[in-house]
Design a protein around this nucleic acid. Structure first.
Lengths: 248, 248
DNA sequence: AAGGATTTGTTCGTATGTATC
DNA sequence: GGATACATACGAACAAATCCT
């Protein structure tokens, strides 16, 4: 093991970005004291085994992101924004899931189109290959911060006009009511992670190099018929996914 | 949006690494024809909006990882290794979960120590602050490939000597048997994602810049008493986490 | 069998970004 | 802040292996 914690040279990832990532992801909480003050730049430089300038570049990037705040003569401080905990289970719902964690929750309609279903989507929704589907591109926000963006597919025949109801209410659950779907269940969710692409960066207002959690899910109505296939991307810095009860 | 898909300049992440990450992810989807052949270097360079050399360094990195294979005069080919699907639920168990996906599953003991419980651990396990716990560092492999590494904590009093039973059997479930725990449940799991640190890179044999899925979980025995608190890091390239039924 | 087209591999040079001291 | 070393990225050739006609 190479002396310094988690910093790799010649990896294709600049040292300042590796350090910024580590500070952002929560090492900040371990590094900071009760007042949220980080160690001095010199101390950080020693800890990571790099030059002070390199630490400064990392800090500047985080200040730009709003994660840190640097005050000349006093020190560098953490701007606290605790991670939201997003529950995944049979009853997965955006707004209800974040109740108590954020005052205001809302979904925004970014885009929509009626088009031919990709093969995987048709199979998941149990539609004929090439059937027409509604594709919905949405952005979920909590207290004004972008939390996730999703691409969802619905049977175009059954849910024609769904996008209008969603745009008005900002809620999938509410929009379903207009189609006599009073209840629905999350049958399955597959979770993976990757680097944010350029659309993620823009829509979720992320910094380059950020990581997104990708949840691919299938919702079914009461009779067990698939009604919604979706891929949701969460900012990994702002959200963790919760399976089962809350952690103590 | 900047013409080329998902590539950000001046981001602190080298272009070749961003491209390598994208190719690695996209293996399942678009890239690669029926024979597993990638588009030519020139075509990829155009697609990503970079020089051919830059694509080449990305490909070389993936060849080094064993993801791709390049043959002069013929092309570049995918070495298929589909992602494992790791189920998370009340019955979360490593070996049983990957049944049918990998022939050989095994846990290896990397390290262990009896020590004072960190505050968060003591609280999760419902122990007195500063109680003694067993810390277990393990590596899980499937068909010889490293899948995940975990740091688990157990009550030192109740599970003294647990590490020996685990080392012999390679299974947490089996080791529990020696302590009259015939059954246990996963009460909760919190899932996040981050860049792999240097220990992850070495233990999981990852390339620098790789992403790990982090699952923090709490297991309880039949009576509901917490018995194991663990943080598991999965290679995001090799594993996806599955909540609920299998995707179709 | 010969030769041209395609595709990966190699070698120059040059400019810019990153990190150190 | 300035000088230096190294990594990254681009451009233009040319070489070598493979495929097809």
């Amino acid at each position: 093991m190479s002396g310094e914690a988690g910093i790799e040279r010649r990896s294709g990832v600049a040292l300042w970005r590796q350090i910024a990532d580590q500070i952002r992801q929560g090492i900040a909480t371990e590094l900071g004291d009760q007042n949220g003050r980080l160690p001095t730049e010199i101390a950080l430089a020693e800890r990571f085994g790099v030059n002070r300038h390199t630490v400064r570049t990392a800090i500047q990037a985080l200040v730009q992101e709003g994660v840190l705040r640097a005050e000349q003569g006093r020190g560098t401080f953490i701007e606290r924004q605790p991670r939201l905990s997003y529950p995944i289970g049979p009853r997965t719902r955006f707004s209800a899931g974040l109740e108590g964690q954020a005052r205001e929750r809302r979904g925004n309609l970014l885009d929509h189109a009626y088009e031919e279903a990709p093969a995987a989507v048709a199979e998941a929704l149990e539609l004929a290959p090439g059937a027409r589907v509604l594709r919905l591109e949405t952005l979920a926000e909590a207290d004004g911060r972008p939390i996730s963006r999703a691409r969802s597919y619905f049977d175009a025949k059954r849910f024609a006009g769904f996008e209008r109801h969603f745009a008005r209410t900002g809620s999938i659950t509410m929009a379903y009511r207009h189609f006599n779907v009073s209840d629905y269940l999350r049958r399955s969710t597959a979770i993976s992670a990757r680097h944010a692409d350029s659309v993620d960066l823009e829509v979720l207002k992320l910094a380059p190099g950020a990581i997104v959690l990708v949840a691919i899910g299938l919702n079914v109505d009461r009779s067990g018929k698939p009604i919604q296939f979706s891929e949701t991307r969460f900012s990994a810095d702002r959200v963790e996914l919760q399976v089962g009860g809350q952690m103590p």
